[in-house]
Structures are given as C-alpha cells and as structure tokens.
Simulated assay, not measured.
Amino acid sequence: MNGKCDILIVYLYVDDLIITGNCVKMFNDFKKEMTNEFEMTDIGLMSYYLGIEVKQRDDGIFISQEAYTKEVLKRFNMENCNPISIPIEVEKKLSRHVKEGPIDRTLFRSLVGSLRYLTCTRPDILYAVGYISRYMENPTTYHFKVAKRILRYIKGTIDLGIFYPASAAFTWTSKKQPIVTLSTCEAEYVAVTSTVCHAIWLRSLLKELSFIQDESTQIYVDNKSAITLAKNPVFHDRSKHIDTRYHFIRESIAKKEVQVKFVKSKDQVANIFTKPLASKSYRVDWE
C-alpha cells in the first residue's frame, strides 16, 4: 500500500493471479515485477472466471453468472420452463417424512451444489437453497420438485447479479444461531451482537487499510425490545440468563463504534436471507 488511498489486491487461485486496485502505477509495477520473476501470460481484463462474469464500469463492477445459469438450466432440462416470481412458497414446510418416492441422491446433490454456487452472485436464492440443502441425505421427488422451483425462478431472473459501487465494501452471511433462545427478543439480541462483532472486525480491517471510520456503524434492527435490551446497561430478569459474551454490544454502543437503529420489518432487506417472502416483498435493489 502506498499512501492512504492507493490499494493493490492480489487473489491467487492455484496458478492464476487476479490483480485489482485503484492505483494504475502500483498495478503496472506489480505486473512488471511478476512478469520478470515468473513466466506468466497477461490475459487482460477479467470478464469471465470460474463461471462468474465481470463487467467493469466507471462507477463500479457488476458481477453475474448468466452463462453458468443457462448451463444449469440446460443440464436439468429446465431451459424452456415457465418462470415464477419467488423461489420458494411462503408457507412451504419441508420434512424428511414425506410419502413420496426417493430420488437419485447424486442427481439431487448435483442440483443443490449448482444452486449453491449460484448464490455467489444471487443472494436472493440463499434462503431457499439453504432450506433444501438440509435434505440431501435422503431426498425424495417432493424435495426435488421444490429444488426445481428455484430453477424456474432463476429462469425469469437470469440476468440478475450484484453491483459493487466504486470504493464500497460489502459483506453478508447467513447461518443458524449457535444457541437456543427463549424468545424472539433474545434471538434478535443474539443476532445483533453477532452483527456488531462482524462490524467491529470490518472497521478494524478498514483501519489497517487507512480507511478510518469516524462515525458509528449503523446496525438496523426490526425488534424494539432487542434495541432496548442492547442499550440498557442494567441486568434484569429478562437478560440475566443470556451468556455474558452477548452483552458485548452494550460496550460497543457506549464507545460509539456502532449505533442501533429501528427499521420496520417490511423495510428490513436482510429478511431475504432468513425467511421466504411474498412476491410483493421480494424486491432487491441490484443497481
């Protein structure tokens, strides 16, 4: 890194290098040094890599998997299927105990694996794919139909992807909580604490890159009780059974590293990662 604004990032995959950054001089100097040291071939700007298409623009980068999506649809004979508006029904409840015949495990796992790779640029299918992934051990034709429904959804949204604006950092994750909670408030509180820990880590990482954040990181929560619990330094009956480490959020708020704000559930964009949504709510601002 040279100065406060110049960054060079190098990705290594087996014997391939991907170089990116915001300083042309650093980029050219590194490329020249590597070419002199090793026998390498410059294939130019990256536009397609491991099934991911990259379109560089003046205001940022757009990544998608349109070509890979078409390959997946063709592989499972769904290239001519009728598209639908949501990947999974809102009231859909899957179970291991269904009265339908078994399906070939290899076929089902191949479909799920292909869909999981698509989540690299399609977080809108993350919940649905994670849901059907629970039934790979003994899948049935019922589970296979649910998985193919996701293919029908991506058939109608084949050109979607993620747009990264210039000079913007973006990270997301979705996983089950490691503990059993006794209420919705407690579940939200634990989730917020986990988010705060990740935010603090990102702030520290950006600081190492000389991008210091003076303002508090905004954490949006759609549960007022969890917000009240996070801001209240006094332990009482509602929180005395919660593990002490989950109260880390209170210290972060006191230091003004983060700020917890309320957001209505209908405006909580993170819901797309955690639950099935109706078609009118299934909106993502891709650009």
Rank of each mutant, 00 (worst) to 15 (best):
Y135K: 12
Y220D: 00
M40F: 02
I154K: 01
F273W: 04
P233A: 03
R75A: 13
T41L: 14
F108I: 07
M136N: 13
D285E: 13
I253E: 11
K99I: 04
V72C: 11
K275N: 10
N36V: 03
V129W: 09
S95N: 12
N36L: 09
A254F: 10
E287S: 12
E186W: 06
S210V: 01
H198N: 06
L202T: 02
C5L: 10
K256C: 03
I132R: 14
T119P: 11
T41M: 13
I179L: 04
T244A: 14
D59R: 10
H247L: 02
A187T: 07
L73Y: 08
F62M: 03
I212A: 08
L73R: 09
I84D: 02
A169W: 08
T106E: 13
M46H: 09
S114A: 15
K155Q: 08
F108N: 05
F108D: 03
S85W: 00
I88A: 11
L111A: 04
T141N: 12
D15I: 04
D29I: 01
V90I: 12
Y189E: 00
S47W: 06
T193Q: 02
C120T: 06
V258A: 00
A128N: 06
A199E: 03
L17K: 12
T20D: 12
D237A: 11
A226I: 03
I219T: 05
S64I: 01
I150D: 05
L107A: 13
H247A: 01
V112I: 13
L151Q: 10
K224C: 10
L126N: 15
D58N: 08
T69W: 04
F144R: 07
D237G: 02
R238W: 02
V98D: 15
V284S: 11
G21S: 03
E215P: 01
S204L: 04
T119H: 09
F262N: 01
Y49Q: 06
D222F: 05
K92Q: 14
L107T: 15
F144Y: 14
L151D: 02
K92E: 12
K264M: 00
I86W: 08
A278R: 11
E186H: 00
